[in-house]
């Protein structure tokens, strides 16, 4: 291949990465499609139920939930996932900063929860694309969750 072309092509790729690039992310969930892909309220209920099971078994993070009111956590998490996926709910809980204040959640603990959520979604048979779209929504909240 022509070196000059190769060198320009590689530079373009590098520069386009350094520029804030959300071009490739699809912006298709301004509607309730993600909510539907997750299986609606029933599907989200199941995901959260499985997530709680995973957390209860995970010695890396279960301690962080020692003080948690499980029923309230379950209800608010379902509501929140319903809300951010475009479903007919409005999250009524406190902000992510407030909820996680003083918990000093580490990156490793956050990663562990993401792993548990993926396992829960696998168990609930959520399609990969819908899993990734939900993970992207939750990824946006990471900076409000860790190190609070």
């Amino acid at each position: 291949m022509n070196r000059w072309v190769a060198s320009v092509a590689a530079s373009v790729v590098t520069l386009s990465l350094i520029a804030p690039a959300q071009i490739l992310a699809d912006e298709s969930e301004r509607d309730d499609r993600l909510f539907q892909q997750l299986g609606g309220l029933g599907g989200i209920d199941l995901i959260v139920e499985e997530l709680l099971v995973e957390i209860s078994r995970d010695l890396r993070i279960v301690e962080q939930f020692a003080e948690t009111n499980v029923e309230r956590f379950r209800r608010l998490l379902v509501e929140q996932i319903c809300d951010i996926s475009g479903g007919p709910c409005e999250y009524s809980g406190d902000s992510m900063e407030l909820v996680h204040g003083g918990m000093e959640i580490t990156e490793a603990e956050f990663n562990a929860l993401v792993e548990n959520l993926i396992t829960a979604m696998d168990t609930a048979r959520v399609p990969l694309a819908a899993q990734n779209r939900l993970l992207r929504k939750l990824a946006e909240m990471r900076s409000d969750i860790i190190h609070q």
Partner: peptide
């Protein structure tokens, strides 16, 4: 090197792009 993972890229699949000089 600059690397970026788009969690939900084309078709909802994760896409990793990388450039190195």
């Amino acid at each position: 090197s600059a690397s970026k993972l788009f969690l939900a890229g084309p078709g909802g699949r994760s896409l990793l792009l990388n450039g190195t000089v």
